[in-house]
Computed example of a mutant assay.
Amino acid sequence: MNETRKIEKRKMMGPITILMAMTAVMMIVAAIIMASCTTVDSTVGYTTGQNNETAEKTAEDVSVTTSGKSVWMADTTAVRNYTINVQTAYTARGRMISLTGIYELKVDGNNVVSYLPYFGRAYRTTFGIGSPLDFQSQTMNYRQERTKKNITRIDFDTRNEDDRIHYHIEVTDDGHATIDVTSMYRERIRFDGDMEINL
């Protein structure tokens, strides 16, 4: 009789053991899924899984750091803190000028520091020496949008002491930037360079 009970008990324990094993496996899988949904991505600095739309947008808005410098990447619509280091100027008459000095356009929030040379014709006489594109001021009418694949366009106006100036910037995802500068009293000029996000 005891032997029969032992056999029946073993028969009942088989399905229970399998059920317990399956439950344990499901709990482990659930724990792994939950852990992966709440891990912090150290390269981006946000918690994934809480708001997928926000996480995806933040991933798009982050620059990539190479050689200690943060390089422009993708649609950085939330970023208004960058520097464009220029190497080449193109005059309105088509002349290309390689620049040997350090020239840059820096945007920091609503502030702009333009340290660019100028080659071209002025439509009215102005006083002072040096480049009319060498000044510090505030940005106005700042707009930034994604226009087509791999291109982000930035437009803003600003003023120096005697002129109103418009900057039109196009940036590819790898950081190559072109700056078209137009003003009320001078011929337009264009610059080529590379953009870096200021950390």
Rank of each mutant, 00 (worst) to 15 (best):
residue 2 N to C: 06
residue 3 E to W: 06
residue 7 I to G: 04
residue 10 R to A: 14
residue 12 M to S: 14
residue 14 G to F: 12
residue 17 T to Y: 15
residue 19 L to T: 11
residue 20 M to H: 08
residue 22 M to H: 09
residue 22 M to Q: 12
residue 23 T to R: 13
residue 25 V to P: 04
residue 26 M to T: 15
residue 30 A to Y: 07
residue 33 I to L: 10
residue 34 M to W: 06
residue 35 A to S: 13
residue 38 T to A: 10
residue 41 D to N: 09
residue 48 T to Q: 15
residue 51 N to A: 10
residue 54 T to A: 14
residue 55 A to W: 13
residue 61 D to C: 08
residue 61 D to H: 09
residue 63 S to L: 05
residue 63 S to A: 14
residue 64 V to Q: 12
residue 65 T to S: 12
residue 67 S to Q: 13
residue 68 G to Y: 06
residue 68 G to I: 05
residue 69 K to Y: 05
residue 75 D to R: 12
residue 79 V to E: 15
residue 80 R to H: 12
residue 80 R to D: 08
residue 80 R to Q: 12
residue 82 Y to K: 10
residue 84 I to S: 03
residue 85 N to F: 06
residue 85 N to D: 08
residue 87 Q to T: 10
residue 87 Q to D: 13
residue 88 T to P: 01
residue 88 T to G: 04
residue 89 A to D: 07
residue 90 Y to M: 08
residue 92 A to H: 04
residue 97 I to V: 14
residue 100 T to Y: 09
residue 100 T to S: 11
residue 106 K to L: 03
residue 107 V to W: 07
residue 107 V to L: 14
residue 108 D to I: 14
residue 112 V to I: 15
residue 113 V to Y: 14
residue 115 Y to N: 10
residue 119 F to E: 05
residue 121 R to C: 00
residue 121 R to L: 00
residue 123 Y to H: 04
residue 123 Y to P: 03
residue 123 Y to F: 09
residue 125 T to R: 03
residue 130 G to M: 02
residue 131 S to I: 02
residue 133 L to H: 01
residue 135 F to D: 00
residue 138 Q to T: 06
residue 138 Q to F: 06
residue 138 Q to N: 08
residue 139 T to Y: 04
residue 140 M to H: 06
residue 142 Y to M: 10
residue 146 R to Q: 08
residue 149 K to H: 05
residue 154 I to Y: 05
residue 155 D to P: 01
residue 157 D to G: 04
residue 158 T to E: 07
residue 163 D to C: 01
residue 163 D to R: 02
residue 167 Y to D: 02
residue 168 H to M: 11
residue 169 I to G: 04
residue 170 E to P: 01
residue 170 E to C: 07
residue 172 T to K: 11
residue 172 T to H: 10
residue 173 D to H: 12
residue 181 V to A: 03
residue 185 Y to E: 01
residue 190 R to C: 01
residue 190 R to A: 04
residue 191 F to W: 01
residue 196 E to K: 11
residue 196 E to R: 10
residue 198 N to P: 01
